[in-house]
């Protein structure tokens, strides 16, 4: 198992090298001149040149690249100009915020979509099937920023049930001591139930926004996959053997229907990381997506490179985890390099 894992990891290395080269080049061909941008108002050609020199942008490209790779080897992703902080530090503090949000959204979506999909498949054509179709269509056709703003308008502005959309915590609350970076876990570990409640109440609306967006693919995939499995030979055999419907559906059909759902889940997770950017903007969530977008707007190279690199590593890890999960769910699938 370990050997296959190692082999699988080794294949990821060329991908990462490629990502490093491509992001470096991409950020350099982007329109916009960071030196001009950061020279600020009242810039003169001379002051722009001074800024360019202090950013090291006056050196030839290969030299800039070598320096970038060298820093990377030391775990240094450079400094962000727009926030003024080391990129590594920023990513470390912002990644948990995004991960907490994305995972909550995904979990919420799973809890709703999988049972919905299974029921829709078992009672094909019934009212629950129609509900599944309507929910899925509505969820996928509403843009996330719209859902987010609508939820804020209804639950915060009109009804006043949700807390103000000001990020992970209310302005007057203090963050729990950072252990995992996930406020929900950290506040529980610190037995600070008030912070837990505060963090949870801030998390609900953005997580629901993401969940609404991701319901559709999961529910539809669960339904389709369940339908295929339910009409297969071994389910017919199980039914013919007089097994209880519950046993047939849960033990035999569901487990076999899960493989494509897991694959979809991996894809949905990556969509969600993308959709996150907008949700983070709407809810002032201090996540990695809004960070990268702001950096891109300011032609701030270092955070964009850091972001892409972090995402690439995340995807490689995610794919690996899904491959391993295949083996757990269905022992016939082998993880090969």
């Amino acid at each position: 198992m370990l050997a296959t894992l190692g082999k699988r990891l080794a294949t990821a290395i060329p991908t990462l090298i490629g990502v490093v080269i491509v992001t470096f080049l991409l950020t350099r061909v982007l329109p916009g001149d960071p030196a001009v941008y950061f020279a600020g108002p009242a810039a003169t050609p001379q002051s722009i040149a001074e800024v360019r020199k202090s950013l090291g942008l006056d050196r030839p490209l290969p030299e800039q690249f070598l320096r970038y790779v060298g820093d990377l080897a030391h775990g240094d992703l450079g400094n962000s100009l727009s926030t003024g902080q080391p990129v590594v530090k920023e990513l470390r503090s912002r990644l948990p915020a995004s991960a907490e949000l994305t995972l909550s959204g995904l979990l919420l979506s799973l809890v709703i979509a999988v049972p919905l999909g299974v029921l829709a498949a078992v009672r094909q054509g019934s009212w629950i099937d129609h509900i599944c179709r309507i929910v899925a269509t509505a969820g996928v056709s509403l843009p996330v920023f719209f859902t987010g703003l609508l939820l804020v308008y209804i639950f915060y502005f009109v009804l006043g049930w949700a807390p103000s959309p000001v990020g992970r915590l209310d302005a007057f609350a203090t963050a729990p001591p950072s252990i995992t970076g996930f406020y929900l876990f950290d506040s529980l570990l610190a037995r600070d139930f008030e912070s837990f409640r505060a963090a949870l109440s801030q998390l609900i609306l953005p997580a629901v926004t993401l969940a609404v967006f991701s319901l559709a693919p999961i529910a539809r995939m669960t339904r389709a996959s369940m339908l295929a499995v339910l009409s297969s030979d071994f389910v017919r055999t199980a039914r013919a053997s007089g097994l209880a419907t519950r046993t047939v559906i849960v033990t035999y059909a569901f487990r076999n229907a899960m493989l494509p759902v897991i694959t979809t889940l991996g894809m949905v997770f990556s969509f969600l990381l993308g959709a996150n950017v907008l949700v983070e903007k709407v809810f002032a969530w201090p996540g990695i997506g809004s960070y990268a977008v702001e950096a891109l707007i300011a032609s701030d190279f270092a955070p964009v490179q850091g972001f892409v690199l972090a995402m690439a590593i995340l995807y490689v890890a995610l794919n690996l985890a899904i491959d391993v999960l295949y083996g757990v769910i269905d022992p016939r699938v082998r993880v090969d390099g």
């Binding site: 804020v152 308008y153 502005f157 006043g160 103000s164 959309p165 000001v166 990020g167 903007k281 809810f283």
Partner: peptide, 21 residues
Amino acid sequence: IIWRTIPSSGNRRALMERGDA
């Protein structure tokens, strides 16, 4: 002074009108 960044102008307005900022 607590100075918060709220990127969405609609939300800034909602925060003001609800008296939270």
